[in-house]
Amino acid sequence: MIEEPYRWVEAIANRREYIEAQLAPGSPIASLGYRDGILFLTVGQTRQKIFEIYDRIAMGAIGHPGDIERLRMAAIELASTEGFTRSATDVSLRRLVHYSLSPVMKSAFEQVYGPPYLARMLFAEVGEQPEEDLFLRVEYDGEIAANGATYAQARQDFAALSGTQQSRELMEAFLASQHAPDANLESALNSALDAWSIGHMTLQTSDAKEPPERSAVRKHRQEQLANAGIEAAVLERDAGRAIRYRSLSDSKLRPLIRD
């Protein structure tokens, strides 16, 4: 069937369409660099979506839980053995993603007789300074998007992950205009909740070019938070101790929400 090149291209295109459809309902995750670290946030607690990978690295993921688990395990194994044989400072997110995860995901995606990874991941590594924070989004086909400055885009102090490209882009547009990298945790939390709401609202709509009205976002946010729990974690910038990851409980965050 796929001996002919164009058949292979067709198979890949079908596979892409299938995976996109599987990932489309995924609840968004927002990740924001702020003064004291990096905040990861999503709403809904049916299963954990934000994970500690290593001392300075965290991961958020949407997709099939089995695939997320295999990728998460691989990332932890790689980081842990690197940290053990060399040192914790030699564990680098850039190397982990570029040289280990991405090639594996790409080949799984392109070998059309084998199963691809149904997962989309967002990694962040906290730096000494906010300018050193690194965000990497890894797609199911191994594609990597980073937060660094390019000719087309200014450096971003945030990253977003969502079920659809449109939803993610609206979240990013919101964060680019509303989020300041020197924000405190309270501001970052509220920006993250707004970004999540925008992402969540625009998952279903097919042609939203503009983000929803501010009042609509607030309303959606209140409705969702009335029922669902917040899942959040931070990577602390404080160099006082090696392990920077700390999960934040829903009850600790509720008082910080501004309506």
Binding site: R70, M73, A74, E77, L78, S100, A108
Partner: peptide
């Protein structure tokens, strides 16, 4: 990285 699921084992 080995594709075989080490975590599985």
């Amino acid at each position: 990285m080995d594709r075989s699921p080490v975590a599985f084992d």
